[in-house]
């Protein structure tokens, strides 16, 4: 860890209330729903606190990964395609 990082780590220990607030307001912070001054204060804290910064980054990364990797990339079985075709041809609601 760099000197700045070590300094940030100790600074973080000295301000546990800010770290608690970051976790408490995490959802609203990430979604951009906080009032501007609160958002700004938390951003300032993140500049000082590597641990909270990492926490926020990992939360955002989770959302990103979920979106990017969730859907299975598996082809639709041919039998299902056939069934859907029959469904389209025969179903009374599809007129």
């Amino acid at each position: 860890m760099s000197a700045k990082g070590i300094f940030g780590f100790f600074k973080c220990l000295m301000h546990p209330a800010e770290c608690w607030k970051t976790k408490k307001l995490l959802y609203e912070f990430v979604e951009g729903e906080l009032p501007k001054d609160t958002q700004h204060k938390l951003e300032e804290h993140l500049g000082d606190c590597p641990s909270c910064l990492e926490y926020v980054k990992s939360y955002r990364a989770t959302i990103e990964l979920t979106h990017r990797h969730c859907l299975p990339h598996q082809p639709m079985p041919d039998s299902l395609k056939q069934k859907l075709q029959e469904f389209i041809e025969q179903h009374p609601d599809l007129k």
């Binding site: 969730c70 859907l71 299975p72 598996q74 639709m76 395609k81 075709q85 389209i88």
Partner: peptide
């Protein structure tokens, strides 16, 4: 539509 977008629709439904 099934031919073009069916695989992704299937992925959503399967999930």
């Amino acid at each position: 539509l099934v031919h073009i977008h069916g695989a992704k629709m299937y992925g959503v439904a399967l999930q």
